[in-house]
């Protein structure tokens, strides 16, 4: 199928984009890796596509003492290649490398991934575990939210009409920080049936755990020390979150969480990644 007709605008700055998006039939597009297929299937029929991929503000990399603020339009490939600085010991490149396929990573953006809020996508769970914050710009000004507050549910975000993601702030972590990540996919590059990301940084006593690929928003445990050290606690957490109803799926989720925690020790690289 071919896309239904749409108009196209490329505002030169954030303000222009926000103004263009106040038209209810307008949709923002950055890398287009999610919107493109929806257009071709005629499931999305925006009156106007507002191209935000070239907004200077969305392409910035702003080093701050406590972390880095990334423009939302940076691509997965730019993270994968280390083309932008990383406030963690290489976690962002590692995660980016496992997202979909290189041809998609070359165009797809970190902001687009968050805006799409797929619970099984890599960035939402990873960034939630890393304690990242989303910077939003809209008709009412700017605001910021932690990732776990930004994502309200599966494909649901706190984005208000006309609002776009301007940037993502990722806090700095020490060289001793460890990141365990595991996803269970039916095939390479395909969506995850279960996923978990764990961050431990001895400096600053950070222990965060995020469970993704649920039917809803990521499950984020900000003080995850006990969970990391005792698997039964994870079971309780899954039960409490209503993720244990189906025994076979419960076992899957539990195993993936345990493997992510175990991966903290092994520093394992994702498949196909140079050591």
């Amino acid at each position: 199928m071919k896309a239904a007709r749409f108009d196209y605008l490329r505002p030169v700055d954030c303000a222009g984009a926000i103004a263009a998006l106040e038209d209810a039939s307008a949709r923002p597009m950055a890398g287009g890796q999610s919107l493109g297929p929806m257009l071709n299937l005629r499931l999305s029929r925006p009156g106007c596509v507002v191209d935000i991929s070239r907004l200077p503000e969305l392409r910035r990399v702003e080093e701050r003492p406590d972390g880095i603020l990334y423009g939302a339009g940076l691509t997965h490939a730019e993270f994968e290649d280390g083309a932008v600085a990383d406030p963690t010991p290489g976690f962002l490149a590692r995660i980016a490398h496992g997202i979909a396929y290189r041809a998609v990573r070359n165009r797809g953006t970190i902001g687009g991934s968050l805006a799409h809020a797929d619970p099984a996508a890599d960035w939402p769970t990873t960034l939630a575990a890393l304690g990242a914050r989303v910077h939003l710009a809209g008709p009412a000004g700017t605001r910021e939210l932690p990732v776990e507050a930004f994502i309200l549910g599966a494909f649901e975000t706190a984005l208000a009409p006309g609002e776009i993601i301007a940037g993502i702030f990722v806090p700095r972590r020490s060289a001793r920080a460890r990141f365990g990540y595991r996803k269970s996919c039916r095939k390479v590059g395909e969506f995850a049936e279960a996923m978990c990301a764990v961050l431990v940084d001895p400096e600053g006593d950070v222990q965060r755990l995020a469970i993704g690929a649920t039917e809803a928003r990521q499950l984020v445990i900000a003080e995850a020390g006990t969970a990391i050290n005792s698997p039964e606690v994870v079971d309780d957490i899954l039960r409490a979150a209503g993720l244990a109803a189906d025994p076979a799926t419960f076992r899957l989720r539990r195993e993936v969480v345990r493997q992510a925690i175990a991966a903290l020790a092994t520093k394992s690289q994702p498949e196909g990644q140079p050591a």
Binding site: P37, L41, R186, K187, V188, G189, E190, F191, E271
Partner: peptide
């Protein structure tokens, strides 16, 4: 299934 993301064909990794 209406896309190859629903109907899975084996890839090089499989």
């Amino acid at each position: 299934a209406s896309t190859l993301a629903d109907y899975l064909l084996p890839g090089a990794g499989e």
